[in-house]
Amino acid sequence: MKLFPMPFHSLLLFVVWLLLNNSISAGHIVLAVFFAITIPWLVTGMLDEHPRILKPWLAIRYALMVLKDILTANVEVALLVIGPIKNLSPGFVAVPINVSSDLGITVLASTVSLTPGTVSAEVSKDKAWLYIHALHLDDEAELIESIKQRYEKPIKEIFGC
């Protein structure tokens, strides 16, 4: 039996426990280690297969890039909201995706929702199409291309699927 069946979740539990208590005293560290070991050990049998993060550094770089995009997205959407609404041309777009794992699709859809002017609405049953709604749709092909280049490629590399 492995000591850490889910290393990422163990780390998350450890950090979140310390943050919730807002202290790094010895007692809390011992408790956090206890939770980080026992909880994954108890629940690991209930989970489906989950893909591993193959390239952690790329994942960190991706997270930073998304944070930067969120900032610009917020300002952009705020300007669109204040500006004249008549000029807005919303639209639904179908984006073909070829990320196969559920986790990858979730991450991609969440990223699309948080970045400029788009909200993901639905994934088709065969997991090949991501439907998004754009607040201001200028050029459909360009939007699809930017999503595929900017977000899908790194996700495919990170999860290796």
Binding site: L71, V75, V77, V81, V119
Partner: peptide, 16 residues
Amino acid sequence: PDIYMRLHSPTKASTL
């Protein structure tokens, strides 16, 4: 004007 457009403003502006 419509629900799909309204979705954009709370999810993004409110997060920041």
